[in-house]
Design a protein around this nucleic acid. Structure first.
Length: 764
DNA sequence: CAATCTACTTAGAATGGGCGTG
DNA sequence: CACGCCCATTCTAAGTAGATTG
């Protein structure tokens, strides 16, 4: 069998190469002997320090901390405030000119800090509360309600006006104080588990923002949940080496199970994966095991694999009660560890579970795939929380690596991962204030770009003519980022990650120039692997100057040389910062995505369409963005089949329609002859039936179209990260589409701010 | 200025649970 | 009333960007 496996290896490799990434595959070989000799030593050093980390880390971390402290003392927060004010003024000016509306300024009452008191956020019940909670209807009463204990400045006027004002505020980076409106009486003290009461959701977007840099005032949480300990296999599950049963030590067995669990995954056939796995596995073996097990291909994990399959099968077959029990246990865990208290509010944590040990699964052609991701212990964990909070207790017999109190960051827990040596964090859910504010801000930055994008475009057109090479390269790169929504393209450490690129890191080999192609002039053909090793392939006609510049940049270069050799993301972003405050390369992606959605919605929505057809239009607009951003997915494994199923449903429906029409016809004929009430009624009901079936058919057909068009395109990423949700909300309001048709529960939670504040006339 | 470190957003795949259906 | 399918959720890798260091 070992021979077979090897054979398969090479075959699969070869297929892979032929299929999608052609030349990319060989890149590593080529690149290794690329003018990087000098780099190598450094890399080695880096490697060393990375792996011997802890002492180094400790000292540097301390330094870091000390610095923070002094910074804090020397009144840098004051500085922040001032800066903030300035920004504020500017913004207000901008707004005035753009929207002639009267501004009603709300003074802040008492700064941003409310007394230390927990308003309970809706937990379980609240979280799953019906969507009507989001609706505007509740709005006014809430505002009124809180009047008695929370000062607010809005006079009760018509809701619409209030809304308008809110929109202005939102643009104002410093929102004025409107206090949230809880129906109930405030609780006087901090409490772990606030009573559940009939509750409104906290509208953080109506509150004052913290000065830049400060992320919270109070933070308390229970720490992370660790991966369950390893449970050794039952005696009867065997591992075979070279055809003979072999009992493995617990540690070696655990790592072996990681591999066994992935046995039918393509990964385990890849040479790099196998090599890395075997190397790391051997580190976990006893010396006898090490001397016996010398070749991975002689290892037989199939019995183990079968065992795990049987286990997961058994899990599916479990009785309702057992499943219920597991569910309840999960809920308990979520309730206890899934929330924290940040500044008087209970907020959901995104990933409170520590990543369990396993084999590293990199994307694409990752040089580290198959390496062992080690088990994270409390001793690896840094806890971040308030000084005056109840500090989470480490598991019995353990201690934390460190507990710190840094309110300039948003994370609750961090640890250093052993594959890349990077830091992982536990942070809050997207529905939290801290994430939501940032998200909102992101779209506001993109909207500011909208105001000056013409100027910037003219500027880079000018720069194509610059005497300075650096400026020309910058201008061409920016043109690509703007026109094609490319990512910035930071440099990456060679050999540490898959070989992927973005705009600034494009190499000569990634583009082809065609002075003429298919009747178009000056066509650039892009072909490279981007983030997550997703292929970007596109043929784009460009302006002549761009084309000439590209020719110039490529002169006397090897295929593996950088296209923009005088440019990197840092240079580019510095330039962008000069053009507009807060502008970076990624803002263009956000801007172009959102503006495209808005345009497409305008273009594609047909007022006469029914709801499903309008939603198809929405999805098409969304799709245009996903295509722009190159958000792809592997066509679902069951795609063809599910398409066939749908088609047969459509056929059946068509037949049903034909039948119904026949029946209607005969009923009509019948009615003509008989001329009585009863037969007339029959005609009516048959008519209705036909109509109903027509509608159903139409719905199915729309669904089929949508699905077909979506085969390889992922809409989720753009919807979640690039499209200003207020555009979608406004569209829904304008056309009377229930928001639930566009956003699921999670998305509605994430975009609660937008759902609450956007009116149908919202303009991105 | 380059290398390194840190914090945060963005990303597709895997998983799991609920729901419609035959 | 099991079954398969589909979508939401979970998971964690892979980016961006800015700060820090040397």
């Amino acid at each position: 069998m070992s021979g077979d496996q090897l054979h398969n290896d090479s075959q699969i490799e070869a297929d892979f190469r032929a299929n999608d990434s052609h030349k990319h595959k060989d890149k590593h070989k080529d690149r290794e002997h690329r003018h990087k000799e000098h780099k190598k030593d450094k890399e080695k050093d880096r490697e060393k320090s990375k792996h011997s980390n802890s002492e180094h880390k400790d000292s540097s971390e301390k330094k870091h901390k000390d610095k923070e402290k002094t910074k804090h003392k020397d009144g840098s927060s004051e500085k922040h405030k001032d800066k903030h004010k300035d920004k504020d003024k500017e913004k207000r000016k901008e707004e005035k000119s753009s929207s002639g509306d009267i501004k009603i300024k709300k003074e802040k009452e008492n700064g941003f800090s409310s007394p230390p008191r927990i308003k309970d956020e809706p937990d379980d019940d609240g979280f799953y509360a019906s969507p009507k909670e989001d609706s505007k209807l509740l709005k006014r009463p809430r505002e009124d309600d809180d009047a008695d204990y929370k000062p607010k400045k809005i006079k009760t006027e018509d809701i619409k006006k209030a809304k308008k004002r809110k929109q202005e505020e939102e643009e104002d980076s410093k929102a004025k104080k409107i206090k949230s409106k809880d129906k109930k009486v405030p609780e006087a003290d901090k409490r772990k588990k606030p009573k559940k009461e009939e509750e409104q959701k906290w509208k953080w977007w109506e509150e004052e923002r913290y000065p830049e840099g400060i992320k919270w005032k109070f933070l308390e949480h229970k720490g992370p949940v660790f991966a369950p300990p390893y449970e050794p296999l039952p005696e009867n599950v065997k591992f075979y080496y070279d055809g003979k049963v072999m009992k493995l030590s617990t540690k070696a067995e655990e790592v072996a199970t990681f591999f066994a669990k992935m046995l039918d995954h393509e990964y385990t056939t890849k040479e790099i994966f196998r090599k890395n796995f075997f190397k790391d596995w051997r580190k976990e073996m006893t010396s006898e095991e090490k001397s016996t097990i010398t070749s991975l291909s002689k290892c037989d994990f199939t019995h183990m694999s079968q065992y795990f399959k049987a286990q997961s099968e058994a899990r599916k077959q479990m009785s309702k009660e057992e499943k219920q029990k597991i569910k309840e246990e999960n809920e308990r865990l979520l309730k206890e560890y899934g929330y924290c208290v940040m500044d008087n509010h209970k907020e959901r944590i995104a990933n409170f579970k520590i990543e369990p040990p396993g084999l590293f699964r990199g994307r694409g052609n990752h040089p580290k795939m198959g390496m062992l991701k080690r088990r994270i212990m409390p001793e690896d964990i840094i806890i971040n929380c308030s000084k005056d909070s109840k500090i989470p207790a480490p598991p019995p017999g353990h201690k934390w690596k460190e507990v710190r109190h840094d309110n300039k960051v948003t994370w609750l827990v961090s640890w250093t991962e052993n594959i890349q040596g990077s830091i992982k964090y536990i942070m809050l859910n997207p529905s939290s204030r801290i994430k939501g504010e940032k998200d909102w801000q992101k779209y506001e930055t993109a909207r500011r770009l909208k105001k000056c994008v013409d100027k910037i475009r003219n500027q880079y057109r000018e720069d194509w003519k610059s005497k300075e090479m650096k400026v020309r390269q910058r201008a061409v790169a920016l043109y690509f980022i703007d026109k094609l929504a490319l990512r910035a393209g930071n440099e990456k450490e060679e050999g540490e990650t898959a070989d992927t690129v973005g705009c600034c890191s494009l190499r000569v080999e990634h583009i082809k120039l065609h002075p003429e192609l298919d009747g178009q002039e000056y066509v650039v053909e892009f072909d490279f692997l981007g983030k997550d090793s997703i292929r970007y392939y596109n043929k784009v006609p460009v302006e002549k100057r761009v084309f000439k510049n590209l020719q110039l940049f490529m002169e006397n270069k090897q295929p593996e040389d950088d296209l923009f050799d005088r440019l990197n993301t840092s240079i580019l972003n510095k330039h962008l910062q000069d053009l507009m405050e807060g502008l970076t390369a990624k803002v263009f992606r956000t801007y172009n995505a959102s503006i495209t959605l808005q345009q497409q919605l305008k273009e594609l929505t047909n007022p006469d369409d029914n709801i499903p057809a309008k939603i198809l239009s929405y999805n098409r607009a969304n799709r245009a963005v996903a295509i722009l951003c190159n958000h792809q997915r592997a066509p679902p494994k069951t795609f063809e089949k599910s398409m066939m199923n749908l088609q047969s449903k459509i056929d059946a429906k068509k037949e049903q329609l034909a039948d119904a029409r026949r029946e209607l016809k005969s009923a009509k004929a019948d009615a003509k002859v008989r001329r009585d009430e009863k037969s007339k009624k029959t005609v009516e009901s048959k008519k209705k039936a036909v109509q109903r079936i027509e509608e159903q058919l139409m719905k199915l057909e729309v669904q089929a179209t949508d699905r077909e068009e979506n085969k390889q395109i992922a809409l989720g990423t753009s919807k979640l990260n690039y499209l200003d949700p207020r555009i979608s909300v406004a569209w829904c309001k304008k056309w009377g589409i229930p928001i639930e048709k566009i956003y699921n529960k999670t998305q509605r939670e994430k975009f609660a701010w937008a759902i609450d504040m956007a009116e149908e006339d919202y303009e991105f």
